[in-house]
Structure formats: C-alpha cells, structure tokens
C-alpha cells in the first residue's frame, strides 16, 4: 500500500497539470468561439503554411 505515497501525489499533480492546461487554454481564448473552428477545419486542404492560433 505504500505505493500510494507516490501514486497519490502523482495523480494530484497530473490533475493539477490538466487544470493548469485548461486555464491557459481558456485564457488564450480557445473556448471563446466553439462554432467557427469546426467549419474552418473542413477546408484546410490547401497548403497555407502557418496555422494561426486564436486571437489574444
């Protein structure tokens, strides 16, 4: 059972990392517009180079 002493902090760390990633994504505006990106993805056929990230 002592394995839990490692597992528990690790699990919490992982969860914390997930939450941190989500917060960063939300603050970067990844969830501002959930309607347009699916439409945008339909026509990524041409090679346009840089896929720009969300607006700040």
């Amino acid at each position: 059972m002592t394995v839990l002493l490692i597992m528990l902090p690790m699990a919490l760390l992982l969860a914390g990392f997930g939450v941190y990633a989500f917060i960063r994504a939300a603050k970067a505006g990844q969830f501002d517009d959930l309607d347009t990106p699916p439409l945008r993805a339909v026509f990524d056929d041409e090679l346009e180079g840089k896929g720009s990230s969300g607006s700040g």
Binding site: A26, K27, G29
Partner: peptide, 21 residues
C-alpha cells in the same frame, strides 16, 4: 464580456476537477 465568460468557464472547470478528485 469575453473575459467574464472565460472566468466563468474556468471556475466551472476547476470546481469540476476538484470535485472529481
């Protein structure tokens, strides 16, 4: 308003993660 939306969403997500654990 967009920033307010983001804060709302973050609160929900954090509360959800904590509740789950």
């Amino acid at each position: 308003r967009t920033r307010e939306d983001r804060r709302h969403l973050i609160r929900v997500a954090v509360a959800g993660a904590l509740a789950g654990n």
